[in-house]
Amino acid sequence: MLSDLVQYAASGVTVGAIYALIALGFTLIYNSTHVANFAQGDFAMLGAMTTVFVAAAGVPVVAAGILGILAAACAGLLLYRAAISFAKNSSVLGLIVLTIGAAIFLKGVAQIVFDKRFHSLPAWFGTEPIKVLDATIQPQSFVVLAGAAVIVFALVVFTKKTLIGKGILAISQNQLAATLVGINVTTIVTLAFVISAAIGGTAGILATPITLTSYDAGTLLSLKGFAAAMLGGMGSPMGAVIGGLVLGLVEAFGGGLISSAYKDAFAFLAILVVLALRPQGLVGSFVRERV
């Protein structure tokens, strides 16, 4: 029994770390534009699929991974520069629909450029399971966790310690004031999209050895990432991480202890409960905008 619980915890945290990275992408874009970007999961798919196909063409996996992340980053750049920034004056809802359109578009492109099969990537440190308290854990789980930790740490340092990172925060708090100190909002928001997309692409690549990937893997990832961000409190990076981990754990324990058929349902049930009790999310706070 104990080994089962450890097993659920390990897989919950691993999947949760992926959700957390997708949720972080949501957070970054939400903070700079107030838009929930439903193409976030498709950035992950694009990063993973590009890596798979470039690696299959004979390029070393690491180089393929870098190309995969770049592909995702380009998609983020295009989403903002070719779509969102042109529709700046439409409502937030309109922009969200636009991101859903972009998600469908990316899915379609992936289906044509790549294929409709499932693909995997070699696990970085093999597949020999590691035994912890009678539970068996995939080495790739540790890769996912370490990767997620590095990304979260880097993002925190970037936003808290660098002027450009502070600029992103400033835009999220007060666009008028940000413009009046000389911040070019378009440039900085573009940067936020590129970083979000790159994080999404990285998440997709890290997860692929465990979860596999396919052209349509982005849709569910977007939903889960969005749910995690909501659960933690939309707009809070810490909330995104906690929301992702909680979501992953709820799914793993719900699926393991009750029924794996309802795994996804547990996750959404958890969100309903949390948001009913704490509409601002687990760690989020209501920010009143000063006028």
């Binding site: 502070k166 925060l169 400033a170 708090q173 008028l176 004031a177 009046l180 000389g182 911040i183």
Partner: peptide, 29 residues
């Protein structure tokens, strides 16, 4: 944003400080 570089600044109505950021960060921005 470019006008600021050219030497034009504004103290906007209602102060519009970045309320969720530190005083030093406001100045650095």
């Amino acid at each position: 944003s470019e006008r600021v570089k050219r030497g034009l600044a504004q103290v906007p109505e209602g102060r519009q400080v970045f309320g969720g950021m530190s005083i030093e960060d406001n100045l650095l921005l």
